[in-house]
Nucleic acid binder design. Structure first.
Lengths: 154, 154
DNA sequence: GTTGAAAAGTGCTGCGA
DNA sequence: TCGCAGCACTTTTCAAC
């Protein structure tokens, strides 16, 4: 794992800019940070080699492709040992976009994206609750996503 | 808002590929989908104009920059009307990476990223619970993030 | 709407400081 | 280790289909 000491302020600034807009040109970043384009390139290569960079993703508006509902699901498992097989099954449910193994009342915690309430019920009843080891679920629907961003590294 | 009918299969395929890797060259995508580079460009321009594309982000490994803890916070507000001002204050807490207004037991639901347990306690006690209108919080620590992906649009 | 090619801009590499 | 300059590649545009 990369050590924090290997990442200096310039690295952090470059990363921050690309975390907001991954397609921004290196030359443009170089201009703003008053270094050469080559330097930005060398730093990015270093950060990639260190495994700091996981990848880049294009973000779309889920509404535009017909996904209106975002919900969180707390999942109770019958026994903790069911976790590994449950995760494998959950991976096959495309509506699940995030899944965590958590402390607290639930064993697992998922974020799902659905087209409408009908679709949500279908995913809950026929997909998630049908998975072996899942005892019971609790659903929280997001009425508004007021903040979405990445961790600040500056 | 863009209509689903305006987005065809080719658009969806292009988006899917870029959602996995935003820096992939259009020419490369064009080759795989057996169309010309110009077509990919035209489609992407259309999708941008329609507002389907929200942006692109570089993803980093939070561990590599010293962030080890991911937690979910359920927030009880004294009264619903405190929501708007609370959101404004929450926006100023950089550790909060996601915030939702939800149905169910809590008024708000947040995802936060912290360096360690000390940092988590600091964010909870001194930042989130200090916000006017926040009555009480419940914390769930993610021990493992087993799934992270975007909604499938194919 | 799509194509293919030309023009402009960007990423990459090696050399020099 | 950093910056500069040349080359290869990509993006972008546009006329023609």
């Amino acid at each position: 794992m990369a050590q924090i000491s290997e990442i200096d302020n310039l690295d952090r600034k470059i990363l921050s800019m690309l975390m907001q807009d991954a397609t921004r040109a290196y030359t443009d970043i170089a201009k703003e940070l008053q270094v050469s384009g080559g330097t930005v390139h060398v730093r990015m290569k270093k950060l990639e080699d260190l495994g700091v960079i996981k990848g880049s993703h294009l973000f779309i508006n889920p509404n535009a492709v017909g996904y209106d509902i975002c919900a969180f699901i707390g999942i109770y498992l019958e026994k903790g040992s069911a976790y590994q097989t449950a995760v494998t099954k959950m991976r096959q449910v495309p509506e699940i976009v995030e899944m965590h193994y958590t402390t607290g009342q639930w064993s697992m915690f998922a974020k799902i994206i659905c087209r409408d309430t009908l679709h949500l019920r279908e995913v809950l009843n026929e997909k998630i609750q049908a998975i072996e080891g899942v005892e019971r679920t609790e659903t929280f629907i997001s009425l508004e996503e007021s903040i979405t961003r990445q961790v600040s590294i500056l």
